[in-house]
Design a protein around this nucleic acid. Structure first.
Lengths: 349, 349
DNA sequence: CGATGCTCTGAGAGCGCTCTCTCGCGGAGT
DNA sequence: ACTCCGCGAGAGAGCGCTCTCAGAGCATCG
């Protein structure tokens, strides 16, 4: 587009070249390129023009070498399962991360952990100073990742409250999570306000803190809930269906269900309809997540607890940036952030 | 685990330190770290031990500064749509890329294009020499990406045959694709061999080369195919269902369907069953992709054309590495690779 | 026994950038 | 008019690594 005087092929112009062209010193060019503070306007203009004309782009490696800043953040995917990416939840979070990182002029380096034996490589990479920090997701309780990260002393932020033993006590990594417990409480209270009296819960996997927090929220409201009203799922549609069938068998009189996520809610919904139960007339149903792809497909439309997933991703980045920018490494690490949830009323409850 | 003498906190050991400890020069340590060719065994051992003891990890930026090699490759995601990652096809390909990149000691930098206005940033990043090369996916015909990549002169490999105007003629980027046309031919021939005589096709989006190649393959075999036997879809389940309904209306006598992908095949299957048609007795059905999540769920199990998606991802990386490692930039760019497909016979045809 | 050739090691010059330190210059204070 | 202060610009020293080049050491050969 711009008529750029094609420079010597293969060799990009350096700071030096720009300085020569603008008739100033390297230092001045550097100052201008990095914001231009403390340089008089006419000089700034002259340098800017030279940069433009030469098509100068700073050499990242050289800059990193002296500043010790990479402008890159690792996103660590430690899920051993296959369908990580397929998880819309995950996609949204990564999207938020990507966007916020861009806003901070940082790059996203994807680190895909290929099983436990791979931590060696990850650790070497993280330790090699390739990235300024790391973003990881709440992993299963026995995952080595947190200790690996701690060992290499790389600033990190987690997505989701970590659940490893003693996580609450020790000064662990900051994390971003939504108010799972509060959201669950709100869902159950809503069901109560509808006059429902036998409210069941389809719980998520026992080793994920989000699921634990949601069941805790349920119990907060329903202090004397019958254990028979709680069924175990694993966040998949199928498990939701199974759990619903189980609940119906145990407590055919139930009049409401709070599922720990939308996927399980949709599974439950299917079973409910197969049994000829009307939603919400006979059984009111509330999910969790407000996952667009699920919510759009259910009939009746699913009432659920919304969490701002993309926003959580962005927040993770902001938290990490705050850690990176604080002068004193020890001084007051930023705390974790719990984002609010919001009950979205639709037709199912 | 290993009793490492905690070095001064915050300061990693440098080559210099290792050299001092081993009693050799920096140059020798460098040689050992980079493979140790041309260094006598006793010295190699001594250096290795010093590296071990100090926990030395080479500084990437310093190395990049002199070698002009980054050890990083950009994966560009230019899909404007939301459900990129959710696409299992995509996930598998990225997985393959990630694995192969790891094998080449390279990192995966994710570049997510946020709409057309974002190409400026992408271009700046690519041009800034942050990465050694780029991997991109076959984009829509009017996408700017190829020209952006060409402008910044970054080695790149595409996934999927590019379809922009004149792509075949000009010396474009190498690409990796499966033999869509051949696979389609095989599918149709299989249907013929089953004695089917009125074989319909549910086509994919007109602006994607994979869909075009598949319909071409269908026509290769069925030279005189009635246009009424072809219905248009867009690779989604829903579109497959719609297309099937349409076909059934136009040609109630059809006895076989070749869908351009598994997703559409599963949509078609649903409609077929709703209409009380038996598969494969009344209508034989063949898909394309052999997508595990779809194939596992269909009843009867779907006969389909398998393509090795992860393998294609790996191939993209290998191709790129070959481009990067050739001394003469102009000399014989490696050609594209077409991977074979394989008909997987199951119950549906 | 010295010359020749080979292999292995070390010295040192950068790679492109940032950043501190110093110096020059102009305006305000006395 | 002279000093003092402060701001803006330049000089130069690295950041940690690679790689060329020259030299040291050794074996072989004439």
């Amino acid at each position: 587009m711009s008529p750029m005087p094609d420079p010597a092929p293969g060799s990009r112009p350096t700071l030096e070249a720009v300085a020569a062209r603008a008739g100033v010193s390297r230092a001045t060019v550097s100052r201008v390129v990095n914001g231009g503070a403390g340089v008089r306007q006419p000089l700034v203009d002259k340098v800017r023009r030279a940069v433009e004309e030469l098509g100068y782009i700073p050499n990242h490696a050289a800059r990193t070498l002296v500043t010790r800043r990479n402008g890159a953040v690792a996103v660590i995917i430690a899920e051993p399962e296959f369908r990580v990416f397929s998880d819309p939840f995950f996609e949204q979070q990564v999207r938020g991360i990507s966007r916020e990182l861009t806003a901070h002029d940082s790059q996203l380096v994807l680190l895909w952990v290929e099983g436990p034996g791979d931590y060696d490589r990850i650790s070497r990479y993280l330790g090699g100073g390739h990235v300024d920090g790391a973003l990881a997701f709440s992993v299963h309780n026995d995952d080595e990742l947190p200790s690996v990260i701690r060992r290499v002393q790389v600033p990190a932020v987690f997505g989701g409250r970590p659940g490893w033993p003693g996580a609450a006590a020790e000064p662990a990594f900051p994390y971003v999570d939504c108010d799972n417990r509060g959201g669950a409480r709100e869902a159950v209270r809503h069901l109560l306000s509808l006059g429902r009296e036998r409210i069941a819960h389809i719980a998520g996997p026992r080793d994920q803190t989000s699921a634990i927090d949601r069941i805790d929220g349920y119990r907060d409201v329903l202090l004397d809930a019958d254990a028979g009203l709680i069924a175990q799922g694993d966040f998949t549609v199928e498990s939701g269906a199974r759990a619903m069938a189980e609940l119906l068998e145990r407590r055919p009189d139930l009049d409401a269900v709070f599922a720990a996520n939308d996927l399980m809610a949709s599974g439950a919904l299917r079973v409910l309809r197969e049994r000829g139960l009307r939603v919400p007339e006979d059984v009111a149903l509330v999910g969790f997540d407000d996952m667009a792809s699920v919510v759009a497909a259910t009939e009746p439309a699913l009432t659920t607890v919304r969490q701002d997933i993309e926003g959580m991703g962005r927040l993770m980045v902001r938290l990490l940036m705050r850690v990176l920018n604080q002068a004193e490494p020890g001084a007051g690490a930023p705390g974790s952030v719990i984002t609010p949830t919001e009950l979205v009323r639709r037709a199912s409850a």
